[in-house]
Design a protein around this nucleic acid. Structure first.
Length: 507
RNA sequence: GGCUUGGUAGCUCAGUGGUAGAGCAGUCGGCUGUUAACCGAUUGGUCAUAGGUUCGAAUCCUAUCCUGGCCGCCA
């Protein structure tokens, strides 16, 4: 039996056996410092020449990044270390050596393509480790929330015979000779199970065949879809708010080390602990256009300020590069030169990002200012809109024509439907989409026809309105989008172990 | 699908008409506690591919392929 790094505080001063991999190694004449990882954490292990056998020290000299080994040693308190402890090694045994490990300790020194090709190894990096641990915590928080609130998990099928909402492109497969499609949503099935079980949720993979090559899309992702009988839109929004708060607070409580590793500003996450603003679509449009301010903040003005900040940033960074280049040319020691050269590369990268911003922001402002009442928010519109809030914001009562057929009409205003989107702050955009469902048989049938959907494929769904139709609501959460927001990650490809997206099927 | 940035050593990049460069990784040596360790030395490149302009092309032009980013479609 061996111990795990995350439990070492319980073993202070005692001997432990650890099994893991060398994350990084530093070699001195009489001391070798191994940063060991075992999946539960990272810890520095010191191998001193006079504390281990000659054979063991010789074996340790040959270790390189990602070599696998067992080691025995004493847990020693050391304030300099990240976890507060280190291991003074007394014995070690190598399982497998490793040579020329391709991924650097600082993974930022690699391009996206290179890392994607090495995903099977990239997952061993500290940053990826932290993301996957947060992802797991989010999954646990989701199950905990529903399981302790009377919900039953009811899986929806992955093979389906029809396009559920009739819009998105699906992956077609062969089901004993008939065409079958990989599920793009479990919602319609969740409605059926909710009317059987009361309150349910699905938790499963979802597939979309759109050729969307963006930071916010995957071809295969995980979706959670609760559905509740006897629930209206207001209750749905309450649930979305409580659910989101529960997840974020549990991650903050249990995954602090991982969030710190990711450099996540936790105070921003703590902003969820306030009432989420609830804004009708029509009001959101006015905010987006800059016609209405929120807490003294104007959406358009914030973007214009961003442009000025970006320009200023480019000037400052350009000046700093010139200064550092002059320092290098003036003839300095190698260490100083190297330091400055590394800084210059980082600065150039930052300038490239700011220039990208300068190319985009004017387009975003134009899009926001000229936004037409009745159309759907684009990605940049969501970013601009959410900048005036510091908590997630719920936009509700949407135009019927841009939402799905199953959403319930707003009483007295059939042009609007009782849908709600939860938009995360800081430009992370839509995380949750939900609605109160249409309960009236005749209206639902009319809408299916209006959307040109094949009635025969929806007969079973319409049955739900024939036999004890009740008000019911639900929502869908994209798991990876939640991970992305909580971890503050730019691209969804880092939020799932093996991302499947347009142009990427391996590894 | 549209717009756009790039392709130079295993990795990340500089070089923009005149002899192919740096850091990291690798290899060798040094160093009594290192934190992306440090110090010294060293290996490594048909400058994406094809064609063109030129006395001379990594650099200019054309085409093709690949890549990063933004938008659209959406969770």
């Amino acid at each position: 039996m061996h111990q795990f790094i995350e439990d070492l505080a319980q073993h202070e001063g005692k001997e432990v056996t650890l099994k893991g991999w060398v994350y990084n190694a530093r070699f001195g004449k009489a001391n070798i410092f191994l940063e060991l990882r075992d999946g539960t954490g990272f810890i520095q292990c010191v191998i001193s020449q006079d504390m281990v056998s000659e054979e063991a020290f010789e074996a340790a000299k040959k270790l390189a990044r990602e070599a696998a080994l067992k080691l025995v040693g004493i847990v020693v308190k050391d304030e300099r270390q990240m976890g507060g402890f280190e291991i003074q090694v007394s014995a070690l045994e190598v399982y497998g050596y490793s040579k020329d490990y391709p991924i650097k300790v600082n993974e930022n020194e690699h391009g996206a393509r290179f890392l994607a090709d090495k995903r099977h190894l990239w997952l061993r990096s500290k940053r990826q480790w932290a993301i996957m641990r947060v992802r797991n915590e989010i999954i646990m928080a989701i199950h905990e929330f529903f399981q302790t609130n009377g919900f039953v998990q009811m899986d929806s099928p992955i093979f389906t015979g029809n396009a559920c909402e009739g819009t998105t492109e699906l992956f077609e497969t062969d089901f004993f000779g008939d065409p079958a499609y990989l599920s793009q949503s479990g919602q319609l099935y969740a409605e059926a199970t909710a009317l059987a079980m009361g309150r349910v949720y699905t938790f499963g993979p979802t597939f979309r065949a759109e050729k969307s090559d963006t930071p916010r899309h995957l071809s295969e992702f995980w979706m959670i879809e609760p559905e509740m009988a006897f629930f209206d839109l207001d209750m749905d929004m309450d649930l979305i708010e409580n659910f989101t708060k529960h997840i974020v607070n549990r991650v903050i409580k249990n995954k602090r080390v991982e969030l710190d590793t990711l450099g996540r500003d936790i105070s921003k996450l703590e902003n969820v602990n306030q009432k989420f603003p609830r804004v009708p679509y029509s009001e959101a449009v006015k905010i987006l256009r800059g016609e209405v301010e929120v807490n003294g903040k104007n959406a358009i003005a914030i973007q214009e300020q961003d442009i000025e900040d970006a320009k200023k940033g480019i000037e400052e960074k350009t000046a700093e590069i010139a200064e550092r280049e002059a320092t290098i040319k003036s003839g300095v020691k190698k260490g100083v030169r190297k330091f400055n050269e590394a800084k210059i590369i980082v600065l150039r990268g930052e300038i490239a990002e700011l220039e990208e911003k300068l190319r985009n922001l004017p387009k975003w402002i134009t899009s926001a200012k000229n936004f037409e009442m009745g159309s759907d928010f684009g990605n940049s519109d969501e970013t601009v809109l959410t900048r005036v809030f510091d908590a997630p914001v719920m936009v509700y009562n949407w135009p019927a024509k841009i939402k799905s057929f199953y959403m319930k009409e707003v009483d007295g205003n059939p042009d609007l439907v009782k849908g709600v989107d939860l938009l995360a702050p800081d430009g992370f955009g839509e995380i949750v989409g939900g609605s109160e469902r249409e309960t009236d048989l005749d209206i639902l049938v009319r809408k299916i026809k209006e959307h040109d959907l094949p009635m025969e494929a929806f007969e079973w769904y319409v049955d739900l309105r024939r036999f004890g139709s009740v008000p019911h609501s639900g929502f869908g959460l994209g798991l990876e989008r939640m991970v992305r927001w909580i971890c503050d990650i730019h691209h969804l490809r880092e939020t799932i172990p093996f991302p499947r997206r347009y142009g990427r099927l391996l590894p």
